[in-house]
Structures are given as C-alpha cells and as structure tokens.
Amino acid sequence: MIKVNNLNKFFYGKQVLTDISVTFEPGKTNLIIGKSGSGKTVLLKSIVGLHEIESGEIWYGDVHFNKLDFTQMKEIRKEMGMLFQGSALFDSMNVEENVRFPLDMFTRQSDEEKEERVNFCLKRVNIINANKLLPSELSGGMKKRVAIARAISLNPRYLFCDEPNSGLDPLTSILIDDLIRELTEEYQMTTIVNTHDMNSVMKIGEKIVFLNEGVKCWEGSNTEVLDSECTALNEFIFANPLARKLRKAR
C-alpha cells in the first residue's frame, strides 16, 4: 500500500500540487487522471522520489519514504518498476540487455537463469524474436511492452506507469491496459497509472483519483466516475461530443 498525506509541491515558487492525500491499494490498478498540466506526472514522480516535496508524507507500507536517505531509498526502489511516458529504454542496449539490466545489477543469478527470466518477461508481454533489436528499431507499442518487461523483471511490489498509452493507437492501448491489469493481479502489485485516456479509465480504473490544477477533486472507481457531481471531472470526462451524446442518452 502507498499512502500520501498532505503533499505539497512547488516549482520556482509556484504551487503545482496542493494538499494531496490519497491511499493506493495493493492488487488494484490505481489511476491518476486529469487534464494535461494538472499535476499528474509531478505527483507520480513525487511519489517515487524523483521530485523532492516541500511538505507532506509518503508511506510505502510502514516506511516513511520521503524521510529516507539516498541509500535507504535505493532499497525501496529495488521493489519498484516504472513505465515512463517515452518508455525510457536504454538506447545503447538491445531489448534483451534492457530487460536483463536490473538482473545484472541486483541479482546473483547465473547467466542461464537471467536468460530464462528475460525470455519469460518478454514472452509475458508478447515480445517474441526481438531480443537483439535496438530500441530505435521498435514500434511505440513494442517499446512500451519492453519497458513493462524491464519493469517486472525483478518482481516489483510497486508498478508506476506514466501515460502508458500516449502515442499509441486504440488497439495497442487496449493491449497495454490489459497487460497492466493482468500483471497487477498476477503479482499483487500496487499499481499507479497516470492517464487522460478515458478508455483506460473505464477499463482498468479500479480506483481513480482526479486532479484539477494540482488539487485532488474527486476519488472513486470506474463504476462511479460517470455519475460524479464534480463539475471539473464532468468537463474532463465529457469533453468530446460523442461522450456528451452518450451522456444525454443515459
């Protein structure tokens, strides 16, 4: 479980997150949604410790994460996997080396064991016969899947996904969403996904947190989101004409 209490974050004197308190539960796909610039990525990066916060608390289970020093934080980070918006695969390494990297760095497995684990992770995300390809030779969807394979190679307890569907076609987006949900259930991870894709919200949003201009405006699930009375959330959800028509039809 990840718990955030009264988190505040400023950039150059401007407040970008205001008093955010939320709990992300294990075994569930937790979504942070909101418009571009609403503070989703800043919140996610604050939770994983890539941004220092001005005030507030971040708890991983019973560990006060933002009070840890660099070395202690590293130990928690070994239990994290993260899928970045642009995949963030290492350019100089091929697919296999990318997935193998955390194993090389943090395990004492033999080469055979590492190879077996790499192939398992790649197969799990449906990447076959691409072990020797470089990231520059992969499509956007493949890059995301390789990044997921790398993120799960050490069996993480926490999975973070920043805009996993950005730049992907609707069908590939569905594949990625399904994959994230399946892996979350399979490994009982605490998964946090940043998105503004309404398909993802409806499909995998077991818990949804809506941010508007750095403030948490609403919290609930995908079964409740369409009936919310939060004006900002409704503007976000029913932003396109088709969604508005469907709303009227309901």
Partner: peptide, 18 residues
C-alpha cells in the same frame, strides 16, 4: 543530456541504481 531528457536517467534512479 539526451539520457536526462528522455528519462533514461530517471529510469536508472527508479531501479535503485546510482
């Protein structure tokens, strides 16, 4: 610089790598 702006350095940090 390219590794920084493409979040590859962040990816290393998240893994717990210095």
């Amino acid at each position: 610089g390219t590794m920084r702006v493409t979040e590859q350095i962040d990816a290393l940090e998240i893994m717990g790598v210095n």
